[in-house]
Design a protein around this nucleic acid. Structure first.
Lengths: 242, 242
DNA sequence: GCCGATTTGTCCGTATGTATC
DNA sequence: CGATACATACGGACAAATCGG
């Protein structure tokens, strides 16, 4: 729980924007005003605003002010955004999660696995296959590889609940950066076995390498989503001058 | 072309990381050293490092140093990342781009279009349909809506080349923020007419709302990609304390 | 375990530049 | 032109985490 001032201001402004204390296209109070309101330095206000801009909540305009460009969206599908556990995503999407562990094994990284996952050859891994239900419907098939060295005592029971919760709360682990790739792939035999694909012959696939606060990759995951319940959101900002 | 110091440092470090002057898992020089090397304040160095962290290039560790976590990847598919024009993406992917304008029309935003695109009812729009070729193969089908008010003089000829180039270079326009959603959808009749879908019955679809530097949305685009030549990349960082 | 040196994290006050009005 | 607003940059202070002796 960060007690940083900039983070408090960030959350406070974010909530005000979301609850429409400022409406779409409005200008926020100037940095000068915010400095007075929050009793802090201008740098601190600016840091909070920079984060909101990175989230696509506001657009700072030199000489003019900071414009609110947040639009609330109603979401129908399971939306993936930042780094979240399945439990957290389900809660945010107001859906009831359930996990079934299909496989729980240990293996050693060979050349082929190394190329795909980014783990060094010879390292010990946990390999899991998990089926994810939302509101009772099986929608996601996860293939997880975890670095055994950093995650002692992983069990199927933990995997059925939440591995991230175990890492963060029980092991005091800090999850930090995730590099993700989104693709669309043909359904596999396994997909069809566990998911009702209707007439879709493709899956939305997210592969991710996740690092802890020490910059060590501890996870490689391929997450295969049923297309009709999948959505990935993102905000990008254009860099100037190529 | 930004002449900002932090941006110079950012690019310089980025290139050093990419060309493997620092190798994977190495520590970068400490902020103190970088301050001396670049002859600037610590804040300026820190700003550059923060950008590299947001790019997933480095992982700062309190008390330890800043670790390089960049891994070069060989890309086979057409990779989408930041805000780029089709021309820019093609160049980055080392592919030869071509665009064919299928439709060029003007229309007024009605209730239905407004809900979908985010434009206000009554605003005048350009509507375009464009087929994108890479190395001679039609792979992407774009449906663009542009705010006519902000883009005077758009023509099919411009649309066949690069609208972003026209906006930025001819109109002095600044493209800023893009909110994007990635989904997987069934192929449509139009998709099948123009693209060779082999046995895929799905498309990778990116819809985006793009804003200029004044926080005005000037574009809504649905970009439909053939699955076998599509890849979307992303770096996320986990926020602490929920 | 303690202490001091190192390194990153947060915050402040100030100065100057640039764009807008 | 001056006032306002955001953008960049500097230098300093202290906190928090780490590491070596």
């Amino acid at each position: 729980m960060p007690k940083a001032k900039y983070d408090y201001i960030y959350r406070d402004l974010k909530e005000k924007i979301e609850t429409e204390s400022y409406s779409y296209q409005d200008l926020l109070p100037s940095e000068h005003i915010l400095v007075q309101e929050y009793g802090c330095s201008r740098n601190t206000v600016r840091r909070a605003l920079a984060e909101l801009a990175a989230d696509g909540y506001v657009q700072p305009m030199q000489g003019k002010g900071v414009r609110n460009i947040f639009q609330p969206v109603e979401q129908t599908a399971f939306t993936v955004g930042g780094i979240e556990s399945f439990l957290e995503s389900a809660a945010r999407n107001h859906q009831k999660p359930k996990t079934r562990v299909l496989q729980f094994a240990e293996l050693e990284t060979n050349e082929k696995i190394s190329r795909r996952t980014g783990f060094s050859v010879g390292t010990q891994l946990y390999y899991l296959q998990r089926l994810r239900y939302l509101d009772g419907i099986p929608l996601i098939l996860d293939h997880n590889y975890f670095l055994k060295e950093l995650i002692p005592g992983l069990t199927p029971e933990i995997a059925e609940h939440s591995i991230y919760e175990y890492l963060e709360q029980d092991l005091g682990f800090t999850i930090s950066t995730s590099k993700r790739t989104m693709t669309v792939e043909h359904v596999t035999q396994i997909d069809e076995t566990y998911l009702d694909m209707n007439d879709y012959n493709c899956m939305a696939v997210i592969t991710s390498q996740t690092f802890n606060a020490d910059g060590i990759q501890f996870e490689y995951t391929q997450s295969r989503h049923r297309p009709d319940h999948f959505q990935f959101q993102d905000v990008a900002t254009r860099k100037k001058g190529g």
